[in-house]
Design a protein around this nucleic acid. Structure first.
Length: 435
RNA sequence: GGAGAGAUGGCUGAGUCUGGCUGAAGGCGCUCGCCUGGAAAGCGAGUAGACGGGGCAAAACCUCGUCUCGUGGGUUCAAAUCCCACUCUCUCCGCCA
């Protein structure tokens, strides 16, 4: 959310930002309502001042005094008018709130102008794309051949865009999020959080999923609760409506969670495999920082996410999102894209964003820079560290061997009792060397 | 699910029965000052937020006003205080992984 005062004083800046991002919102309506609100406010406050003053005087003069009898009728009238104004004001406040919640964040000046993913800028790339002496299979075929991923039965149990894992596949999923959490908590200084997977509407509004993107979320019937689309939502809302002390910052959190997305509007896209599921696992990194540090913190956060892919030996590139692909809430965003050899493309596996004070203002997350100083909004950041399902896909595809087996990345082997390969029928239990 | 208790500032805690300069006593904490070689103790002063108007080029800040005692409504000239609904927390019982 943008500051209403800022919007009032810089409408042209806001208009340009919307245009750059390709977002639509009723800016003119907002400015009109704001003007109307301030006019109303002035009138009603004058009436309230009058009523307050007279009420005090009635109290002093005594409720049965001549003065009281005379003024009571008059004030009854005033109260009725106040009530009338207050109702109008409440309507317009609500209107302003909604309009404001639908204004996108301002893009950072360094964000390149562009319209879609074609205009994103590659910042750096890492790793060697594997060379195959055979035609590499897609991960869904590998998973099927190894009997570790079962899509048909997940479809029977639940529906499309779900998968279930067996044996080494399930172990791989679990090994990955354990590895990621271990890395970020042990090496990168994040505090582990295990959050609720259901959140209320206020939390969804705080991070920006609501009201604009309601159709992307699963809502639990007969409740106010939503399945989280990312751990970003519960973790960022940890400090909703709080004032943090300046010396507490920066705060780093790492959270594993399942993520649930309706994928409305993605019909027919990525229908096969693990790339686009209604439910997937992810380790999310969330930071609360001082405004002046947030751009540096975004760089560090991105590096922390990259480290996961580096240790897993997965080739990837870092893309700076152009204005048109930036999205609603971020001011600046990097995507990490992992190499998927079967399709011969890079696919997004992590998204690292600086939201500046956009979420903080929505969620009321502030900090006190120093003793006696006025509280101001923190900057929030988050990034996937990283999406687990897509990592499984990337490992299966990049590490596949001609005999159909898949080499387990070195750093994951401790989670596999030392087994170094997944092949059909392998059981990663203790004492099984995998030979 | 049944029964009961509660929600007040950064924290703690009065005020609610008996409505009226109470945005709210006291304590703790914090800030500044005095004291001290320095510190503790002691003493003095200060210490909520949001919104709108005015001062200011603007921020900080100053000033005036309005709102806020879980949330929303009602009664009243006037509500932390009375009435209703809801939310949340705690205790006991039941059920349950």
């Amino acid at each position: 959310m943008l500051d209403l005062k800022f919007v009032r004083e810089n409408p042209e800046t806001v208009r340009q930002a919307m245009q750059k991002k390709g977002e639509e919102a009723d800016l003119a309506g907002l400015l009109t309502s704001d003007r109307e609100r301030r006019d109303l406010l002035k009138e009603v406050e004058e009436l309230k001042q009058l009523r307050n003053r007279v009420s005090r005087e009635i109290g002093k003069a005594g409720a049965d005094s001549e003065y009281a009898r005379e003024k009571k009728l008059e004030m009854k009238e005033v109260s009725a008018r106040i009530k009338d104004y207050d109702e109008k004001l409440r309507d317009i406040d609500l209107q302003i709130e909604q309009l404001l919640l639908n204004l996108p964040n301002l893009p950072d000046p360094v964000v390149p102008h562009g319209y879609d993913e074609e205009d994103n800028v590659e910042i750096r790339a890492w790793g060697e794309k594997p060379e195959f002496t055979f035609t590499p299979l897609a991960h869904w075929d590998i998973g099927d051949n190894l009997d570790i991923i079962d899509v048909p039965r997940a479809g029977k149990i639940t529906g499309s865009r779900f998968a279930l894992y067996y044996g080494a596949g399930a172990r791989l999923e679990r090994a990955l999020f354990n590895f990621m959490l271990d890395l970020h908590t042990n090496e990168h200084g994040y505090r582990e959080v295990f959050p609720p997977f259901l959140v209320n509407a206020a939390s969804m509004t705080g991070t920006g999923q609501l009201p604009k993107f309601a159709e992307d979320a699963f809502k639990v019937e007969n409740t106010d609760l939503y399945l989280i689309p990312t751990a970003e939502v519960p973790v960022t809302n940890l400090h909703r409506d709080e004032i943090l002390e300046g010396d507490q910052l920066p705060l780093y959190y790492a959270a594993y969670s399942a993520c649930f997305r309706a994928e409305a509007g993605a019909h027919g896209r990525d229908t096969r495999g693990l790339i686009r599921q209604h439910q997937f696992n992810k380790v999310e990194l969330v930071k609360f920082v001082k405004p002046e540090d947030s751009m540096d913190e975004l760089e560090k956060l991105t590096r922390d996410a990259e480290k996961v892919l580096q240790l897993l030996g997965l080739p990837y590139r870092v893309m700076l999102m152009c204005s048109g692909d930036l999205g609603f809430a971020p001011a600046k965003k990097y995507d990490l894209e992992v190499w998927l050899p079967a399709a011969g493309t890079y696919r997004e596996i992590s998204s690292c964003s600086n939201f500046t004070d956009f979420q903080a203002r929505r969620a009321g997350i502030r900090y006190r820079p120093g003793e006696g100083q006025k509280a101001q909004f923190v900057h929030t950041l988050n990034g996937s560290g990283v999406a687990v399902g897509r990592t499984v896909a990337a490992i299966l595809e990049n590490n596949q061997q001609e005999d159909g087996s898949v080499v387990i990345p070195e750093v994951l082997r401790p989670y596999f009792n030392g087994i170094d390969k997944i092949y059909r029928g392998v059981v990663p239990r203790k004492g099984n060397s995998g030979k």
